[in-house]
Simulated scan of single mutants.
Amino acid sequence: MPVARFRSVVLDCPDPRALAEFYSAILGGTPRVEDEDWVVLEAPGVPRLAFQGAPDFVPPKWPSTDRDAQQFHLDLDAGPTWAEFDAAHERVMALGARPLDLEDREEKDFQVYADPAGHPFCLCRIEHPRAAESL
């Protein structure tokens, strides 16, 4: 029997509303402002994301050998084809993402970016079993 049920992934940031809008443009859903320091994004098929105001927020460092520099990152499925992946890349860049590692994508099937607050996230090219079967 579990002790608790999963509720949210919470990202600290200087501007919760702006960061919620960034992820809403990528994942869908509509940000719900609960107060100036707490915004929630619920989008179909993804875990609930919440954004908490942290005026003294310091973005994680990536890459870094310092164990405290990065606690976690988000992996986002950009689709099974390179065309979908390239379109997702262009879209996140237009929304304000900053590339952290764009090398060797064909070997890794992912690229690393920072969101506007500096949190690392990956766009991943995921071959879905049904997509591979239909080829």
Rank of each mutant, 00 (worst) to 15 (best):
E42C: 11
P44A: 14
P44C: 12
P47T: 08
P47M: 12
P47H: 13
R48C: 11
L49K: 00
A50R: 00
A50W: 01
P55I: 03
P55R: 15
P55K: 14
D56P: 01
F57H: 14
P59E: 01
P59W: 03
P60R: 03
P63K: 05
S64G: 08
R67S: 12
Q70G: 00
Q71P: 06
F72G: 02
H73K: 05
L74G: 07
D77Q: 11
G79N: 08
A83K: 15
E84R: 13
F85Y: 05
A88C: 15
H89D: 15
R91S: 09
R91D: 12
V92L: 03
V92T: 03
A97N: 13
R98E: 09
R98W: 07
P99C: 07
P99S: 07
P99I: 04
D101Q: 09
D101N: 06
L102Y: 05
L102V: 07
E106F: 10
D109V: 06
F110H: 09
Q111K: 11
V112R: 00
A114S: 06
D115G: 04
P116V: 02
A117R: 00
H119N: 14
H119F: 05
P120S: 04
L123N: 03
L123T: 03
C124I: 08
C124P: 09
I126A: 05
I126W: 01
